[in-house]
Design a protein around this nucleic acid. Structure first.
Lengths: 257, 257
DNA sequence: TATTCCGATAGTGAC
DNA sequence: GTCACTATCGGAATGAG
């Protein structure tokens, strides 16, 4: 039996193994697998945090100032379609919600780090933080009660959590991304549409009443949808370059809010 | 009256002249007008020959090794659509035929000048010509009887005469062009299709039975037609770059024929 | 809807 | 079907003993 297995394995190795190897490591669709299998290797330094259930990474091609991916590690879950699985597994949905909300707060803090000094509405927080940091204190920073700081800007409201109707990467991934769309990696129409149209499914939309229908109804024409500014609602048709320039202008105002 | 005219002229100058100037010299569609109005100026040195009825020029963007345009000078003729006028004015058609045939012989001679030394079938002519030129003679070359030379390659058969179903330039022009399509100015699909499909109307097809119908029936889908090699009949769909490479290969064989 | 490269397609402006 | 420029759209490959 052992010998039989071995023989069969040898046969597989000669015929199927190269194919399997290809579909695994060399197929781009499988590119997220390495993170859930070996987060401790911290591939390319993009692992933010991980535990037995989830891995959080920085997206390799971020489409906004902050763009994180939340990856469930359970292999049988990771291969499911997000619209289906999040609509039918309430326990899993609850665990994703809880974890994604934590990650969203992390993302909000990162937005503050990047743009706090430019923000008018964050000035009270920034001033208080500076005062606190410069004031003599015997208490360690991490022990100080940060809730005593004024709220400042609501950065969390700039973060959106959700999934794509038709993901390209085969491992389930939940996007935690800021909405201002400021990134050199935002290079074409689909990049923007995938986060700012019904192609995007917010985590708070789950469970979907008819996920199968949504997957079908969105798929045909969505690359033809107009570019519409998330900030001012202005439409740009298919004129991506012009739209990109507009986004950059909006970004300058947005970070100063 | 003279004063009145002057006043009107002044008015035109202030209001309409810029517009007229625009539609004349600065509208690309009118670009051939200068040649039929002032061939003696020989704009850009491209006038080959002219008389009261016709001007022959070298195309500014030749789509083959030899590409001449025959332009009728009569303004009321020059503004007619070629399919219509050549189908309804037999006298004009006859005069164009006679003149175009002369120009085609000129074009054939130019092909011989360019490629005669590479051509196998032209070798008898080339040898005889060289012998004649090197032989002592008191007779001037232009007085020698060239008909005594062997025929060599039939370069005239490589020349085609015709018009486009939908010309872009507003002045009537008859193309006299070699068919091998060897030119750096042949840059996209329509360039080739316009000389090697039914978009091209050979002068020998006139008068058309129903020229109006042809103008309508060809117009819609013709840019979608497949690229087909004039030499070998191979189809290349829309793959222009690949087709262009093929044309260059065919050209190498063609000139050696 | 992963990126990247290449090429085909489409719109515009031309004084 | 004028050219030249820009940008958009579209398919194909994508690894590596």
């Amino acid at each position: 039996m052992s010998a039989s297995k071995k023989t069969k394995a040898a046969t597989i190795s000669a015929e199927d193994a190269p194919k399997q190897y290809k579909t695994y490591a060399h197929n781009f669709k499988e590119g997220l697998g390495i993170y859930i299998e070996h987060p401790e290797r911290n591939p390319e330094g993009r692992v933010v945090e991980y535990d037995d259930d989830f891995v959080v990474i920085n997206d390799k091609f971020p489409k906004a100032s902050v763009h994180l991916l939340l990856l469930p590690r359970n292999p049988s879950i990771a291969k499911q379609h997000p619209l289906s699985y999040l609509s039918t597994e309430p326990t899993f949905l609850a665990s994703v919600r809880a974890r994604a909300e934590q990650v969203a707060n992390l993302a909000a803090a990162e937005l503050r780090r990047q743009y706090g000094s430019h923000s008018a509405s964050d000035a009270p927080y920034q001033s208080a933080l500076e005062d606190m940091m410069s004031a003599p204190s015997t208490v360690q920073p991490e022990q100080q009660n940060l809730t005593e700081l004024p709220p400042g800007r609501d950065w969390r409201s700039e973060i959106q959590i959700g999934v794509h109707t038709h993901p390209s990467m085969s491992h389930m991934h939940v996007h935690i991304i800021s909405r201002e769309a400021n990134s050199p990696w935002l290079k074409h129409k689909k990049h923007y549409l995938s986060f700012h149209t019904r192609f995007w499914v917010g985590l708070d939309e789950f469970p979907l009443v008819d996920e199968g229908r949504r997957r079908v109804e969105e798929v045909r024409e969505w690359p033809g949808w107009d570019l519409v500014c998330w900030k001012c609602g202005r439409g740009f048709g298919n004129r991506f370059k012009e739209f990109k320039g507009h986004l950059e202008e909006e970004f300058e105002g947005w970070k100063r809010e």
